[in-house]
Computed example of a mutant assay.
Amino acid sequence: MIEAVKFWNEPNNKSHWDPEVDPGWVRYAEMVKLAATAVRAESPDLTRVLGGISPIDPAFIQTLGSAGVLDMVNAVAVHGFPLDWNHWQIHQWPERIAEIAAVTHLPVWVTEVGVSTFGAEEVQEFGLQRSAELLIGRAPRIHWYSLYDLPKAWPATTRHREAEGSSYYRHFHMGLLREDGTPKLACKHFARYTPELGICQWFHFEDHRTEDAVRWLKRLGVKKLRTGLSWADSFRPGADAWFDRQMAALEDFDVTVTFCFTPEHRGIQPHHTSAPQVAEEYAEFCARMVRRYVGHAATPVARESPLALA
């Protein structure tokens, strides 16, 4: 059921990786190389993907390429939200993919694309249809973010929270479904684009929405799902039992699992965005999760060139 693993989420975004702790991403590069080596030792054919970048920055890919990171992975990934946060227009999606493809031989996956309903549901409705038109056939994997709105009682994973103004509150309105599980306008269109369009849905520790999410994903015809297993959560009491329940619930999907979030007590700084004190510990977590949920055998994802798909 796990077809790929990703090493971190948005490593070039300071909401997810602190550049003051790791100037030039030297520690991140070493961490990914160690983790990729550990995962390959457990499951040689499992597809390894660089953490999806946001913003889409070819210079960042070149930096990691110079550090030897791209030699250790099978694909790179990008995230784009032109109707909410990015400084480019939605029709420029093909250009954004092409500029990354120009600096790497690896396939370019789009592991988060989405539109908030912060202003109006009609904006998301338009954005879904236009994104699908622009991306299907141009990337081997496309994951819409997300199925559910973020519950208002939960914090969004971003650095400055309410100080970001409307940028922060947009995080809470990215779902095809509202917090109470009722569908928005865009939801009625989503099944037109599956299975080519997958979904990215993060599940929090002991998330009460998991079973309902599975029902909705099947109803929408989703085959490809991206989610995460949190290194930080792995230190909670009952963590393995929760991971087991989560992964068992998702067994009918082709899952891309993102390994991320530094445990506060294992970071150079006590924060989930910090580089770890010991990079090998992250690699060991990745290897343990692959050993637990994949085993030795895996089917590699075809290494299509994204431009060949266009």
Rank of each mutant, 00 (worst) to 15 (best):
T256D: 09
V301I: 14
I142W: 06
H143K: 00
L147N: 02
D149A: 03
G119A: 08
A287D: 06
A139F: 13
A156G: 14
E10P: 04
E162Q: 12
G175A: 02
A41E: 15
P195V: 11
V26D: 15
M174Q: 11
T157G: 02
Q124V: 07
W17N: 04
H87C: 09
Y169I: 09
P82G: 10
E264S: 08
E304D: 15
S131G: 07
T117S: 15
K14L: 00
T262E: 03
V73S: 04
H265Y: 02
L70V: 08
A139W: 08
W202G: 10
A241V: 05
V222C: 07
P195L: 05
P107N: 10
R236L: 13
S15N: 15
V113E: 02
D22N: 11
A298H: 08
M174I: 02
V26E: 15
D22W: 11
Y148W: 15
A36D: 06
P300M: 03
E122Y: 11
A75D: 10
T111Y: 00
K14W: 02
A36M: 09
E304I: 07
S43R: 11
Y193A: 09
F253Q: 13
P155I: 12
V257M: 10
G65H: 07
R266C: 01
P151L: 12
T47A: 09
E42P: 01
A249L: 01
Y148R: 11
P155V: 12
D207Y: 05
A186V: 12
T262G: 02
